[in-house]
Structures are given as structure tokens and as C-alpha cells.
Write a protein that binds this DNA or RNA. Structure first.
Length: 477
RNA sequence: CGGGGCGUAGCGCAGUUUGGUAGCGCACUUGCUUUGGGAGCAAGGGGCCGCAAGUUCAAAUCUUGUCGCCCCGACCA
């Protein structure tokens, strides 16, 4: 009877169908609702709260590194988008166009921003005149639109929320430093707060951002062995500056072009959190970004004193800075346990008459196990337990990452290794070898040239020619 | 954009083959009893069957079109 009931709300197990599991979790944890337009979803309060927490962390780190927030227009005139050739070639196939104002056709159509490089460049051309105006370290929080063909909540939408940093510098060196600095900031957000270990590196020529001289990435490993490109930073050199006429006068009174960067992370990273930490009971959230870090479940709450004590405990935790919720609804305790597991709340406190009498409560971390702790000093115990959950999640994910990296020396070994996860090989640098691998494996692409270039051989795993570069490969979302 | 699956109550589905008063479980409302892993009984409320056109005395059911969702490929954060 109870089993039958459970079937109604059941989540498809990960090893049965990982994609179905993902969709189940997204729906049942009440993260998104579909709208009537393909690729456009409603971010429900719980998902938006997660995003706000990620935003809060990122925004603080951006400001600590000297960046300021701005807001650019939603629409880009076609002529402005056209100014940088590689850039427009990369984005033109997936932009949405506005062609009418009211019922009047526009003389020039306007694209809904797929990214805002062109707008920032136009603005920078206006406001940068002297070396004293540099650097410009701007960031924008917004949504962008890209007309994707296949869509999935968080992982690929036609509209998604993100932040895009755009900076302008006096020298190439300074801009290159910025590109790497922000990659480190991203890696820190992922590892320290999202509990997602990363592999940092540089994209190959074929995987670069449209218009960039160099693209850097941090790659995360999901539980099913696929990679998620979670964020990228780009070095533009002075290419955009030349296309848009962004010049300044240096100290020697010489007219020079600026050097630029851009970098972004999006709500896609929430999909990464789901697929990194989730389990067959639902979502599992790292405490650092969980909207509710601890939920207090009163047991036999109609009995005198129980609710009062539960509220008191919740208040103590709130006072101590824990994001806590007391669920005093009249659902059964078992129902509440399952509900908050589904929603990935990192820590559950059970408090019933027996506990109150003994001056204790039960702590049940989402990562497993249960322990009884005294109510005296509960705030410290809860904080310690949250730290443990955060660390356990990171360690598990790091273990998964390590287990899923194989070194390969031949195409056959690569094909086998990519079924499991990342494959690390030597690479000759030829784009043809990238194409060969993609064809042979049906979709494997290069992930990055890792910063750690310790050789694992001396010939290219694809063509057998002498090779000096270490390269990661893998299937990706 | 190719191949496959699917749109019926908030969610999950049956009913479509063979046209004839729209159903089930969960959720929801009210009341009582319950509460340490998705509680029980009773009485209720809720649907232009995705949308549009057609065939018919009659369409959830047949025809055509269209929109959307999911999965697998190709393309992309």
C-alpha cells in the first residue's frame, strides 16, 4: 500500500535512465515549469533562490576583484552585430530578430542579444579616451536568447540567465591576466561553493569563442561520465577594438587600441549541480547555495510543547545565521522526510517528545546517516554538520572525477575511455585529428588543453605523429 | 534539422482499434481520528480531451494542419 503510493512520486533511478532521472528531479524538486514556448522555462522560487545564492557569491567575488555592474540594452541593431566578422558568423545562425515596432516594419531589424560584446564595444568606444580611463572592468547580470534546436531545463534553453563580464585594458598582458584571473574566480565558485571539482584549461582553436584569440574553460564531470562546460573566459586581443574603433591616448600621446576580455557563467551551472550531486532520492544541494540549509521536522507536533520547542530550535539556528525552515504543516513526518530529501535540503533535524525529554534532537545529513545530538549547543553542531556535508559532496565528486579519467594512447583506447568519462591523450595539434575522433566516437570533442601539461606519451593518440600537447576529450552536455 | 515517443483535472495515467452522457489514482477542500520513513475514514470541488479546420445526426476517438514536451542523433554555453 505504501509502496504503491511511492510509485506515484517515484524518481527514475540514475542507472536506469540518467536523462529521465534528471527531468524527474527538475520537475519534482519544483525547480522549473515549462512555458508554452519551446526552450523558455519558468524558474520557480526554489530554483531562483539557488540562482540568487550563486549570484550573491559570484557578485561578491567580482566586486572584490574590482568589477562594476552595468546594464546594456536587450536589442542589438543588425549593423552593430555585423561589425566583427568572426563574431557574427558564430552567432548569426542562432539569433532571434525583432522586425516590427507595433505594426510598423523597422528600417533595420534588431536582434535579441545572444551575448553583449558588440554593445559593450560600442559603449567603450564612447567612454574610453585616455590611458586614465583604463582598465574598464564591467559586468552585467541579464538573460540572453539563442535559438537552440534542442533544449533542456538549465542545460540548454533558448533564453538563459547569466552574467557576462567585459573588460578593456591598456595592454595585451593585462587583458591576458584578467582572462586567467576570472577563470580562477570561476574555479573557486565551482569548487569552494558548488562542491564541483574542475579541470581548467584552454580550448583548442576549433572550440574557441567566436571572435576570441583564446578561450579558457573549466570542465566538470557529471555522474554519467559526460562533461559539462560550466563557464568560459575569453581573450580578444585588440580585434574587437579595431572593428569598433575603441582607442585611447597613452602616456606618450600615441593613439592605441584597447585589449579586451569577456567571461560568463550561466544558470546552466545549476544543471551541473543537479547532475554532480543528485541521487535516486532527488536533488542534493551543497549547503553554500542551498536556499534551505536545515529543515526542522517536529514529530507528534500536536503534543504539548513540541511545536514550541521546534520553533525555539529554529530561532536559535536562524540567529546563528543558518538558513532554516520549520515545517509545521500537518503532513506526516515520513512525508516530510521524503519531501525535503527530494528538494536536496542538506540537513534535517527531527524533534519529537522523546528527544525533548532527553534534551536532544536527531540530525540527518542528506549525504546519509543519522546522529543524536544535544540541544545544548545545537547551532555549532548544525554548522559543523553543514560543513561536513559540503566537504563530503566535494570529496565524492572529486572521486567521481578521478575514477572517470583514463589515459589513452590509441583511438581504440580513446573510444573505450570516453564511454567512462574524460580521456587524456597526447595530441599533435591537427584539427583533422579532432574531426576523426568526433566521427569515430559519434560526438566526442576536445574538452581542453589542461594547464598541467605533464606528458603522458610522445605521439598523437589519433594519428601517431609526434605530439607535444596534452589534451582532454569527452562526451559533453 | 533527421528518427522515435507523447499531449485527456495540478501531477501520473485509462478511454482512441470498433465515433454515442469524460473516468481512475495521487494532489486539493471540509470534518473527525492520527503523527519517529510518503497516515485512516467520510463527504465534496475541479476538464471546450494542446490548438485550428474538416468528415458526421453525433468527434477525446476518424482526416488534415499546427503548436509544444520527452528521448536518440547532427549543431551549439
Amino acid at each position: 500500500m505504501a509502496g504503491e503510493k511511492k510509485l506515484v512520486e517515484q524518481i527514475t533511478p540514475r542507472d536506469v535512465d540518467f536523462a529521465a532521472w534528471y527531468t524527474d528531479v527538475v520537475k519534482k524538486a519544483e525547480l522549473v515549469d515549462y512555458s508554452s514556448m519551446k526552450g523558455f522555462v519558468v524558474l520557480r522560487p526554489y530554483a531562483y533562490a539557488i540562482w540568487e545564492n550563486i549570484q550573491g557569491i559570484a557578485d561578491r567575488l567580482f566586486k572584490e576583484t574590482g568589477h562594476e555592474n552595468v546594464y546594456m540594452p536587450l536589442l542589438i541593431p543588425e549593423s552593430l552585430l555585423q561589425k566583427e566578422k568572426d563574431h557574427v558568423k558564430g552567432f548569426a545562425p542562432e539569433v532571434a530578430w525583432v522586425t516590427h515596432g507595433g505594426s510598423e516594419p523597422l528600417t533595420e531589424r534588431l536582434c535579441v542579444r545572444p551575448t553583449s560584446e558588440t554593445l559593450f564595444c560600442e559603449h567603450y568606444a564612447h567612454i574610453i579616451n585616455s590611458w586614465r580611463d583604463l582598465p574598464k572592468l564591467y559586468n552585467q547580470w541579464c538573460s540572453v536568447v539563442r535559438w537552440e534546436k534542442t533544449t533542456r531545463p538549465f542545460l540548454r534553453g533558448r533564453e538563459f540567465l547569466w552574467q557576462e563580464g567585459h573588460t578593456a585594458h591598456a595592454t595585451a598582458e593585462e587583458a591576458q591576466e584578467e582572462t586567467l584571473r576570472m577563470l580562477d574566480v570561476y574555479a573557486r565558485i565551482a569548487e569552494e561553493f558548488l562542491a564541483m571539482p574542475v579541470i581548467k584549461g584552454r580550448k583548442t582553436e576549433s572550440e574557441k569563442f567566436a571572435g576570441a584569440l583564446a578561450t579558457y574553460t573549466f570542465e566538470c564531470m557529471m555522474q554519467d561520465g559526460k562533461a559539462l562546460q560550466s563557464g568560459t573566459t575569453h581573450y580578444f586581443g585588440d580585434g574587437f577594438a579595431k572593428a569598433f574603433g575603441i582607442t585611447y591616448t597613452d602616456k606618450e600621446n600615441t593613439l592605441r587600441h584597447v585589449f579586451q576580455t569577456s567571461w560568463g557563467i550561466s544558470t546552466r551551472i545549476i544543471g551541473g549541480v543537479i547532475m554532480t550531486h543528485g541521487d535516486d532520492s532527488g536533488l542534493v544541494l551543497p549547503p553554500a547555495i542551498a536556499p534551505v540549509q536545515a529543515v526542522v521536522i517536529p514529530v507528534a507536533q500536536h503534543k504539548p510543547g513540541v511545536l514550541e520547542k521546534a520553533a525555539e530550535v529554529a530561532d536559535v539556528l536562524k540567529e546563528a545565521g543558518v538558513r532554516v525552515r520549520l515545517d509545521s504543516s500537518d503532513q506526516s513526518p515520513g512525508w516530510k522526510y521524503a519531501e525535503y530529501e527530494m528538494k536536496g535540503v542538506p540537513l534535517r533535524l527531527e524533534l519529537g517528545p522523546r528527544d525533548i525529554e532527553a534534551g536532544q534532537c536527531v540530525l540527518a545529513p542528506r549525504t546519509g546517516g543519522k546522529e543524536t545530538v544535544p540541544l545544548e549547543g545545537i547551532a555549532a553542531a548544525v554548522k559543523a554538520a553543514l560543513d561536513t556535508v559540503q566537504k563530503t559532496l566535494y570529496d565524492r565528486a572529486a572521486q567521481n572525477l578521478q575514477n572517470r579519467i583514463t589515459v589513452a594512447h590509441t583511438l581504440e583506447e580513446m573510444a573505450a575511455g570516453t564511454k567512462k568519462g574524460f580521456v587524456k591523450t597526447m595530441w599533435c595539434g591537427a584539427e583533422e585529428c579532432e574531426d576523426t575522433v568526433r566521427e569515430v566516437t559519434g560526438g566526442v570533442k576536445t574538452r581542453c588543453l589542461p594547464f598541467d601539461q605533464t606528458p603522458v606519451g610522445d605521439v598523437c593518440a589519433v594519428c601517431g605523429k609526434p605530439a607535444g600537447k596534452v589534451l582532454y576529450w569527452g562526451y559533453q552536455y
